[in-house]
């Protein structure tokens, strides 16, 4: 059996002329929380659907829990839990009826069924609402129930496609506690998200853009990868004039407005900072703050995607 929980080789999926997934090769270890990031239409959902056997790839191979998805999709399905991007439980069934249905589909043995149901009800904090119609639940509860239904058979691997989209930060926090709990008990979590704070919770991340994986690694690694340049935070009295003044300062690569101040990408942090001080002093612009900062994941990803766009163009 392969060591990897998930492994893909040159996965390609085209829709007509459009390449939705472009030679994606990934390896995900067991027990890992693997984050899948990227702008809308990057191909995250398509990749996850291929891994769950819902879409046949145009070419390439996908292995889940050591099983080739193309060769034995049914065995793969017994080994995974899937939460699709769109809520997909039955609104007209009660919480309990939904759980019983999926327990039946996953073939949870009769003896374990009550125990699994109680576990899921408790995990999703739905014990008191077990007879409520699923359609009457609010977003956070629905999502926890969907997660619960996906883990009834205790699958080693979970595919969660934007599980927390559209719910508030507190509810997201509760959800991520569950995910981390599952990872601690040895489950592999393959999760896509748009939220950068969630990306920080992941052991490793893949950044997807136009069907390609353009960066792969732990969050900290990715920050360092991006640090061929340094980032300076600059707060001053007149931001617009400051931007103009910085244009011809040697060593300045890029200037961007960020919150109330500016993020200045530079080549050599100390020397360039000195030149900026001199230049702004001459222009009679007062500096409130000028310091080197660590780029956030968002900075990293934005600059990676911009770099990729420039490279393609």
């Amino acid at each position: 059996m392969s060591d990897w929980a998930v492994e893909t080789r040159d996965l390609v999926k085209t829709f007509g002329d459009f390449v939705a997934v472009d030679h994606v090769s990934l390896e995900v270890s067991r027990g890992e929380i693997f984050g899948f990031l990227g702008p809308n239409g990057a191909g995250k959902s398509t990749t996850i659907r291929i891994l769950c056997g819902l879409i046949t790839p145009t070419s390439g191979t996908a292995m889940v829990n050591g099983i080739d998805v193309a060769k034995d999709p049914e065995r793969v399905r017994r080994n995974l839990g899937y939460m699709s991007q769109r809520f997909s439980l039955y609104d007209d069934l009660t919480v309990e009826q939904n759980i019983d249905f999926f327990a039946g589909l996953y073939g949870v043995p009769k003896l374990r069924r009550e125990e699994r149901k109680d576990y899921v009800l408790e995990m999703a904090r739905l014990a008191e609402r077990r007879s409520a119609l699923t359609g009457s639940l609010s977003g956070g509860w629905k999502q926890r129930l969907a997660l619960g239904c996906a883990i009834l058979h205790d699958p080693p691997i979970l595919f969660l496609d934007e599980p927390t989209s559209g719910v508030d930060p507190i509810v997201r926090g509760v959800f991520w506690d569950l995910i981390r709990g599952l990872a601690k008990t040895g489950h592999t979590i393959f999760v896509s998200t748009h939220y950068m704070d969630e990306a920080e919770y992941c052991n490793r991340l893949a950044l997807m853009h136009r069907g390609k994986v353009i960066a792969l690694g732990a969050p900290a690694e990715l920050r360092h990868q991006a640090s061929a340049h340094s980032l300076l935070r600059l707060d001053s009295t007149k931001p617009l004039e400051t931007m103009r003044a910085l244009e011809d300062v040697p060593g300045v690569v890029d200037v961007a407005v960020f919150g109330g101040g500016l993020h200045v990408t530079v080549d050599d942090a100390e020397a360039t900072a000195e030149r900026i001080r001199t230049k702004l002093g001459a222009a009679a612009i007062e500096i409130h703050r000028l310091e080197k900062i660590l780029p956030s994941l968002e900075d990293v990803f934005v600059s990676m995607i911009e770099g990729e766009e420039r490279r393609v163009a």
């Binding site: 399905r77 999926f102 589909l105």
Partner: peptide, 14 residues
């Protein structure tokens, strides 16, 4: 239409 087919197809249901 309800999007539930996607979930069904991800289970071992034949």
């Amino acid at each position: 239409e309800m999007g539930t087919m996607e979930q069904l197809l991800s289970t071992p249901l034949r």
